[in-house]
């Protein structure tokens, strides 16, 4: 180790990894439905895309987790975004591409992608 920059580089590379292990209630939670219905309609690639992108873009205040079936199986894959102090936003019929759009628009810029939400479906 010849310089502080080298140390900093390792730290930044590892932070996304080790940072996963902190419990911070100020984090935005992104939850992917991963019950049988979710997996069958393709939730796995959605989940892995979200995880990869969040880490690649160093979004340290976002944690991506899974959950079970919430009862809306026909709308799977479902992704819920829970920001502290805000209403939950439910995105339906997700694909990896749509997930990236949500990540860029909603999670980074703070604009809800209305066209993919449950509300847009008119239940």
């Amino acid at each position: 180790m010849k310089s502080l920059e080298e140390l900093k580089a390792i730290r930044e590379r590892m932070q996304g990894q080790v940072g996963l292990r902190s419990e911070d209630s100020n984090n935005t939670r992104v939850v992917v439905g991963m019950a049988t219905c979710g997996i069958a309609s393709g939730a796995r690639p959605v989940l892995t895309t979200l995880v990869d992108e969040v880490q690649k873009r160093k979004l340290n205040n976002i944690s991506v987790t899974q959950t079970g079936c919430i009862g809306l199986c026909q709308y799977e894959p479902i992704v819920e975004v829970m920001e502290p102090g805000k209403d939950k936003v439910t995105y339906i019929k997700m694909t990896p591409e749509k997930a990236i759009e949500v990540l860029e628009q909603h999670l980074i810029r703070g604009q809800i992608v209305e066209k993919y939400t449950l509300n847009a479906e008119n239940l």
């Binding site: 502080l4 140390l7 390792i10 730290r11 590379r13 590892m14 932070q15 990894q17 080790v18 940072g19």
Partner: peptide, 25 residues
């Protein structure tokens, strides 16, 4: 209980060796 003790990079990831860096520089 938080990091893998056999991996120096995990220690660095939680701010390890930064104090040494600060002291020396």
């Amino acid at each position: 209980g938080v990091i893998n003790p056999e991996n120096i990079e995990e220690y660095i990831g939680t701010g390890g060796y930064e104090a040494l860096g600060k002291v020396l520089t």
